[in-house]
Nucleic acid binder design. Sequence first.
DNA 1: CGCGCAAACCGCCATG
DNA 2: TACATGGCGGTTTGCG
Length: 325
Amino acid sequence: MPHTKNIHTVAVVIFDGVVTADASIACETFSRVKLACGFSPYTVKVCSANTPINTDFFSIKAPHSLSEIASAQTVIVPGPSEVNKEPDPELLKHLNKARESGARIASICTGAFILAASGLLNGLKATTHWSVTDTLARRYPQIEVDPNVLYVDNGDIFTSAGAMAGIDLCLHLIRKDHGAKVAADTARMSVMAMERVGGQRQFIKHEMPNTENITFRSLLEWIEKNLHNNLSIKCLAEQVNMSTRTLHRRFLEQLGIPPATWVLQRRIRYSQYLLESSHFNIDQIAADAGFGSSANFRDQFRRITGVSPSSYRRSFGIKDSQKHY
DNA sequence: CGCGCAAACCGCCATG
DNA sequence: TACATGGCGGTTTGCG
């Protein structure tokens, strides 16, 4: 797997009304991947049917035409800002053609609505931004919509929840192609522009991995279910009957990061989910996510995401008629 | 902000 | 000999 020689083309499609942040996530993440030998395995091509395309805020020109997505290995479909607008039939046609020629296709956020309209999700599981999962499920009864996951992997067709989950999904694809180490390094290198509130910070690298090791996978699932409990290294080691030393080594080789870092990131991840989709106050969220004190929670949250929990909550959610709680 | 204790990290090495 | 394990302990990191 480390010796991938052929260039892998990632086509990012854009269209009128696209959420540019979703598209940027894919461009930034894939273009930053570097293998140990220094080789960049992905070529990112932004493609559109018409040019220039109009977003809600500005116009942009994509350097490639839609016909090019048929020769891509991966096609990324970012979200439209308005899910009630009919997607461009031309785009749907090209997505089907790309699928037929073997490309894997992934949507970010409300991009799932476009995949759904193209028929590619029929009979499959899918997810989208939490505020419109109901809408998706109602409009497409033949799709099994799961509102409780970050992303869904159907082998060749992928969907992801909010913007954060879009990063997770990109890293998941990178991990499938090049392994955990490369994906973890990419996450570390990816300096995302959360320009709204703060400067540039490291982003989180997390989500469920590709571990063939069964005991290891169940440990990660166990962590997920026990985020609010004590998750010291000793506890984790006991859980799988390993010494702390061996556990630490296994973690590094399978996930690219040490155990405590993993746990922290999962806790931050979970707290983000609560901030995005619940009305719990910061103290409650800190406790639910397993932080000893809300002061510590605020501190860690800011260190990792670059913004405070409350401004994170304020800056999330998409434009939609749906009510928030 | 900073102090002090405790935990985590990780190179090193003995052991099976 | 090649390799995985896990204990040790110096240093770093994190939490209250």
